[in-house]
Design a protein around this nucleic acid. Structure first.
Lengths: 223, 223
DNA sequence: GGCGTGTTTGACCGAACGGTCAATATGTTC
DNA sequence: GAACATATTGACCGTTCGGTCAAACACGCC
C-alpha cells in the first residue's frame, strides 16, 4: 500500500493515548460521513460533529480534508485486500470461489461504509486510488487469474474469462452494501436481518458457483 | 414517473426552437458533470461551461441546481425503465434472461454517464428517487419475479430468489459503466473497443444463464 | 418597422466551506 | 513542580458556490 502516500502526522512524535484515540474516532466518523455524502459533499464540520470534537482537531491530526480522505481510503484498501486473500488456490475451485464470495459478502455486511467510500471513489474516476488499481490490484488479479485459467484447462470449471469473473464477483457482492437503499426499497424492508443476509449470501454463492459451472458440492462441469 | 415532480419551466409558455435546444444541451452537459463529480461536487459553473453558455441560463431553464438534477434523474429513469422492459415473459427463460442482460449491457455501454448518476444517487441514499424505488421499481420487480417463480416451479430453471437475481443482474451489468475506471486499470487499457465489450457481454450472458441453471441454448437444469 | 415575449448575458450578493491562528489545557519527564 | 511537547478549542479569514437582478438581445406577429 505504499502507493497511497499520505500518513498520519509526523511519525517521530511522542503520541499520547488520547491522541491515538482521537485519531481513530476521526477516521471512523470520516468513513461514515464520506460514505454518506461523498468527498465533496462531506464537510469537515460534519465529520467533526460526528466525531464529537471541534473542527481544528481534524486538521491537527490530518492536515487537510484530502489527507483525511486518503487516510480513510488507505484504511479501507488494507481490509479490502485482506478479504481478497480469502481466495486460496489450493483445494477445489468450488471451495476457493465459495469462501472468496462469502468473505466479500461478509465485508459488505460488516463494513458497508467502507464499501461505499470505495465505490464512490472509483465511480468518480479513482483520482486518489488510481495508481493502486493499475499496479497492486492489477497484479493480484493477474495472479489469481492464472489459477483460474489452470482450473479451466484442467476441465475443473466452465470457461470464464478470469478478469470478467472478478469484476462480476465484486459487483455481485458489493452491490448489497453500495446499493443497500435500493435493496431495502425493493424488498420493502428497513433493514436486513442477519438471517436474511445469510440467506442472500448463500443465494449469491450458489449463483456464482453455477455461473462457473460448478454445483455447490463442487462437482466439475459436464462441458 | 410522476413521483419525480420537477419539470421544465412554465409549461404554458410559447417555447422557441433555440430554447428547446439549449435545454437539451444543458441536460446533456449536466448528466456528464453530475456523473463525473456527483451532485455536490458538480458546480453550476462547470455545467454551464460544459454546455457552452453562461450560468444564469441554467437557472432560467431549470430554476435551481436541485431541479436540474431532478430533471436529469427523470430523464435517466425513463430510459432505464425502457431497457427494463426488455424482459419479456414469453419464450423460454434463457431467451428472456439473455436479452434482458444484453439490453442492460447495451445501456451501460451507451449511457455510462446516466448509469453513474443513477449509481451515485442510490449510493448516497437515494434522497431524490427513493419514492420511485419503493413504488414503481418495487412493483415491477415483484411482477417479473412472479414470472421467474413460475419458471422455477415448472422446473425450467434453477431455484434462485427472483429479487436477489435482479440485484445481481443489475450489479453485473452496471459495473462495466460505474466502475469503468477500475476495469480499465485492471485490464491495463485506456478504453474497451466495441469488440471487447461485445465479448464481455457474452461472458456476462453465459455466466448469468449458467447461474440460473441454463445453458446458452436454454436447456433446462438437471436439478 | 415597431412591439411583446422568450432568451442571453455580466455583475453582484450572502452563505457555507476549508483552513489558520493564537490561546489554553493536559500529560510526561526530570 | 517546573519545563516542555502534545492536545484541544473558539474566533477568524479568503474563496467558492448557488442564486439573483437588471439590462440587453433576438425572434415572431401585426
Amino acid at each position: 500500500m505504499t502507493i497511497i502516500s499520505a500518513e498520519v502526522p509526523a511519525s517521530g512524535r511522542a503520541r499520547r493515548a488520547s491522541g491515538l484515540r482521537s485519531e481513530a474516532t476521526i477516521l471512523q466518523a470520516a468513513e461514515r460521513v464520506f460514505a454518506e455524502r461523498g468527498f465533496k459533499g462531506a464537510s469537515m464540520s460534519e465529520i467533526a460533529a460526528a466525531a464529537h470534537m471541534p473542527k481544528p482537531n481534524l486538521h491537527y491530526y490530518f492536515g487537510t480534508k484530502e489527507a483525511l480522505y486518503r487516510a480513510v481510503l488507505t484504511d479501507i484498501l488494507e481490509t479490502w485486500l485482506g478479504e481478497a486473500d480469502a481466495f486460496v488456490p489450493d483445494g477445489d475451485p468450488a471451495q476457493a470461489l465459495g469462501s472468496y464470495v462469502r468473505a466479500k459478502m461478509r465485508w459488505s455486511r460488516e463494513r458497508p461504509h467502507a464499501s461505499r467510500v470505495f465505490a464512490n471513489e472509483v465511480l468518480h474516476g479513482a483520482l486518489f486510488i488510481g495508481p493502486y488499481l493499475s499496479d497492486d490490484l492489477r497484479r493480484r488479479v493477474e495472479q489469481k487469474g492464472k489459477v483460474i485459467e489452470g482450473w479451466i484447462r484442467g476441465g475443473r470449471m466452465a470457461r470464464v474469462d478470469p478478469r470478467a469473473l472478478f469484476f462480476m464477483l465484486w459487483a455481485m457482492t458489493q452491490t448489497w452494501a453500495d446499493f443497500a437503499v435500493q435493496v431495502h426499497a425493493v424488498l420493502g424492508v428497513a433493514d436486513l436481518s442477519e438471517a436474511a443476509y445469510d440467506a442472500i449470501t448463500e443465494e449469491v454463492v450458489a449463483f456464482a458457483l453455477r455461473g462457473c459451472g460448478l454445483d455447490a458440492d463442487g462437482r466439475p462441469p459436464a462441458t
